[in-house]
Write a protein that binds this DNA or RNA. Structure first.
Length: 868
RNA sequence: GCCCGAAUGGUGAAAUUGGUAGACACAACAGACUUAAAAUCUGUCGCUGCUAGCGCGGCGUGCCGGUUCGAUUCCGGCUUCGGGCACCA
């Protein structure tokens, strides 16, 4: 056996072995439970980054661990291959997006394989291939038939840099989620998916997902945003051009209908028809409306912006009291939510209160809480309390609590035909049309006579030409006559194809079901899908907590309603892995800019305690600033290329460090020195195994062990017990530390001839334990030491009771809860014996000072606490 | 403001859920081997007081309080930092 650890050789040999034995080919096996382990598929950006390595290592550890425990496993991989970066690369390099994408896929696939991932590559998919996106189109047509998909013209978020429409979800603080450009409002036609039709179920079914992190469920629930309230109208007779505006009704929505008797004014958004009407005859209103339009663009200021408004001079009628109520324009009212108008109750809404104080509007109390005194001088927390409040100054509603008042008021409004209870959702329908080339074509044909005609199923897929080179000015499909021109399926006349493509979130909304399908028939999914689904463990970044996961859940429910699949929820368990961070180093340039330096060109300067105080450049020793720790990013030059790491240390070291540095859900701080530490462990393991192989493995009798051998064996099994416990809760960092403890113990006392039987057992445990994390070295040593042909086929180790028992226990001795020493007692000792031994201990005697203990507490197997 | 989550040595972290705080590592320091370096191995390593030393104490898990024989863990009240949501009516 080779004396030194050479990762290159053993890793390629192990990978060949898995390939030849088809070790990870997923097949239905009767009598075995299934385990579908899925990592979020990558976008083929060019090369793997550390986040990928972390994600896929976690998935592979779980896959291999389950395989060894008797599950039939499915771990697939594919490519989220449509999207903007390919078009941007095309513009920059004059290469078709298709070619760029396929080249990247080929390279990244090699990288994934070099990590030794146990993937069933026969199920590989790329979403840019017609045999995949055909089913996007097919399902889209089914949705059209069911009314789940529909076309409408709407104001959309327009990203001026990417020249595309963004979903509401893709707008962050008024900027495009990818480009960061300020979003403009535009009106264009597009297709929408009725995700709001499933809002109730998407919210309710979160309760069916105990294996999801609470915070992800909370984020989804917030996003769906269900609120119960009352929608009602203030009647008015304000006319424009002879006709009543909005049929003489100013609609508002409120969650606090119980405070309706406290209404002293109404506030409308600057874009509201009443505001527009008032602006025509009132310069002050016109100026304010204009100001709101400009200010509203400055998103950063909005959060801290002063609440401002202007009186329109218009009046509407209170629907219950008949009083005349003034209408104001408020910069805090949003046209996009509810009705674009709100009833204002200064006494019981903090925002309205501030507004009323500023403009000296009346404040009318309509809720009171026992023992509290109302004052219009300052806002108090209880004014908004709907738990304890009862109606006052509210006529017939006096004395009613929140729910009673809302019920009564809603009923009265309904009787007057002026309103009713309504459930309001924050969630909007999903606009899927994108004015981009590199995406799945929307299967629609525009005919001058017949209008928008769906492409018939037998003409699917509508294939996207793969040889276009976008030049940055609009969609290149507009210039492709061969794509554009077609005949109308209804009347046969010449017609034009839709050139919009689908949001790439469509592609990723069902790929997991496609993997699970056997690919045996020309169908979106086949019967094998229901065997593997739902995904038993889904692993990916927290950044997808809302969009991708919500869309996938929605898509699954649509597929279920079409009887394509039989599950309600696609992902039974979800693990959101933390980000990978690294140090940032920078320096101010002469011109006042900031220049960043990659960590490998920098030497850190530390103080005596080892704290980082600064840094200097390796090349010339000049001082630079240490900026702390941040996510790896191209612009800050603090990314680490996993390939360099694999080339230098091997895949096992990369995997081991990734698992050891932090628990999976926590952010991981990159440290080169930590990588070396992990590599050192593997070298030590190899060296120890090689020495053991040389000495030979005679004397394999575990039945008659010396006290030392028993102690060593117990240490091994204790560590194993801890490892198994931690494996089950995905705390892989302490699984690794258990493995390290085993090797430490073996190095300390494993070289004695008398311990050889224990060492032999220990190494077989250690190699099986490490096999999911560092599969290559485990595979190689398992064979070298003659344990068998394939460690993957070995049974997962479990600690033995016989190895854990002790004749004599060491108990911690406490006096008043403070540790004062320890006592040794026979394992069979009863409570009285232990108490006696404890009290007799000199440390206890010293504390007792001749007296007797008040109380003695014995925790079996752990400690004795003497209270004096 | 609301909803999550976190806070433990110089650093990453652990403590099997109320029972020896700091496991396992990294860094640092000292030593061995070496002509030397690298590699490797050994030792020290929370803060602090007394002691020449062996040792013997005190404090310590963001802060303040509580429950308990015993609290990193449970309860109440804060502080700070992450993440999400938000003029959402």
């Amino acid at each position: 056996m080779q004396q030194s650890y050479t990762p290159k050789d053993i890793e390629s040999a192990a990978q060949q072995h898995w390939e030849q034995t088809k070790a990870f080919r997923a097949v239905k096996e009767t009598g075995k439970p299934k385990y579908y382990c899925l990592s979020m598929f990558p976008y083929p950006s060019g090369k793997l980054h550390m986040g990928h390595v972390r994600n896929y290592t976690i998935g592979d550890v779980l896959t291999r661990w389950h395989k060894m425990r008797g599950y039939s496993v499915l771990q697939p991989m594919g490519w989220d291959a449509f999207g903007l970066p390919a078009e941007n690369a095309a513009i920059a390099n004059q290469v078709p997006p298709a070619q760029w994408t396929y080249d990247n896929i080929a390279y990244m696939k090699k990288q994934l394989q070099s990590l030794g991932l146990g993937i069933d590559w026969t199920r590989e998919i790329a979403t840019c291939k017609p045999d995949y996106y055909k089913w996007n189109q097919w399902l889209f047509l089914r949705m059209l038939e069911k009314g789940v998909a529909y076309k409408k013209t709407q104001v959309v978020n327009w990203d001026p840099v990417d020249q595309t429409v963004l979903a509401n979800e893709q707008v962050i603080d008024g900027r495009g989620w990818r480009t960061g450009a300020l979003v403009e409002k535009r009106e264009i036609p597009g297709y929408y998916l009725g995700i709001t039709q499933y809002a109730e179920e998407l919210l309710a079914d979160l309760d069916k997902l105990p294996g999801w992190p609470e915070r992800v469920k909370a984020m989804q629930a917030n996003w769906i945003g269900k609120s119960h309230g009352v929608r009602f109208a203030f009647p008015h007779d304000i006319k424009e051009g002879g006709a009543l505006i909005n049929d003489g009704k100013l609609w508002v929505y409120t969650t606090r209908a119980d405070t309706i008797m406290g209404v002293t004014f109404v506030a409308v958004a600057a874009e509201h028809p009443l505001a527009a009407h008032a602006a025509k005859g009132n310069a002050a209103v016109a100026a304010f409306v204009e100001k709101c339009k400009h200010v509203s663009v400055m998103e950063a200021d909005i959060a801290t912006m002063e609440k401002e408004g202007v009186d329109t001079g218009l009046k509407v009628t209170h629907p219950l009291t008949g009083e005349q109520v003034p209408v104001w324009v408020g910069n805090y009212v949003l046209m996009g939510y509810g009705e674009g108008a709100v009833m204002a109750v200064p006494a019981h809404d903090e925002r309205d209160f501030g507004f009323a104080k500023k403009y000296k509007l009346p404040i009318k109390q309509s809720i009171s809480v026992t023992g509290k005194t109302f004052s219009t001088d300052a806002w108090a927390e209880w004014y908004g309390d709907k738990e304890h409040g009862v109606c006052v100054n509210s006529g017939k509603y006096d004395g009613l609590n929140y729910q009673q008042a809302v019920d009564a008021i809603a009923a009265d409004l309904k009787a007057k035909n002026l309103g009713d209870k309504q459930v309001q959702w924050r969630l909007r329908d999903w606009g899927v049309s994108r004015q981009r080339y590199w995406g799945c074509p929307i299967p629609i044909i525009h005919c001058d006579s017949c209008g928008d005609v769906p492409v018939p199923d037998n003409q699917l897929p509508v294939v996207l030409p793969e040889d276009c080179v976008p030049d940055g000015s609009g969609n290149p499909l507009h210039k492709r006559a061969d794509f554009l021109n077609c005949t109308c399926p209804k009347c046969g006349k010449p017609a034009k194809r839709e050139t919009d493509t689908m949001d790439t979130f469509v592609d990723s909304s069902w790929y997991y079901a496609r993997y699970a399908s056997g690919f045996k028939s020309d169908a979106m999914v086949d019967s094998e899908t229901n065997h593997w689904m739902p995904v038993d463990q889904y692993i990916g970044g927290i950044e997808h907590a809302i969009l991708h996961l919500l869309y996938s859940r929605f898509w699954s429910k649509v597929m279920r309603d079409l009887k394509l699949v039989n599950y309600d929820e696609p992902f039974a368990n979800l693990l959101t892995q933390g980000m990978v961070l690294n140090h940032i180093f920078s320096r101010r340039t002469d011109k006042g800019g900031i220049q960043y330096f990659p960590p490998n060109e920098v030497e850190m300067v530390k103080d005596e305690g080892g704290r980082i105080t600064g840094a200097k450049l390796v090349s010339d020793g000049s001082a630079i600033d240490y900026q702390g720790i941040c996510t790896m990013s191209k612009s800050k030059l603090n990314g680490v290329d996993p390939q360099a790491l694999i080339d230098e240390y091997g895949a096992d070291t990369a995997r081991l460090f990734m698992m050891f540095a932090a628990p999976p859900e926590q952010t991981l701080e990159w440290a080169d020195s930590g990588v070396e530490g992990s590599h050192r462990f593997l070298k030590r393991l190899w060296a120890f195994a090689a020495e053991f192989a040389n000495i030979g493995k005679e004397a394999h009798d575990l039945g008659n062990l010396s006290a030392d051998a028993k102690t060593l064996r117990r240490e091994i099994h204790l560590a194993l017990r801890q490892a198994n416990y931690d494996m089950a809760r995905f705390q892989f960092n302490t699984v690794v530390s258990a493995a390290m403890k085993m090797l430490n113990a073996l190095e300390k006392s494993g070289k004695e001839a008398a311990n050889r039987a224990v060492v032999n057992e220990a190494l077989s445990i250690l190699l099986r334990l490490l096999s999911p994390i560092t599969p290559h070295i485990a595979h190689a040593l398992w064979r070298e030491l003659g344990y068998g042909d394939d460690v993957l086929a070995a049974q997962w180790p479990e600690p033995l009771e016989a190895a854990l028992v002790q004749d004599e226990l060491e108990l911690v001795l406490q006096v008043n809860g403070k540790m004062r020493g320890s006592i040794k007692v026979a394992a069979s000792a009863d409570k009285a014996t232990i108490e006696q031994a404890a009290v007799a201990h000199e440390a206890v005697q010293k504390q007792l000072d001749g007296g007797t203990p008040k109380k003695v507490i014995v925790v079996p197997g752990r400690l004795v606490n003497v209270v004096v």
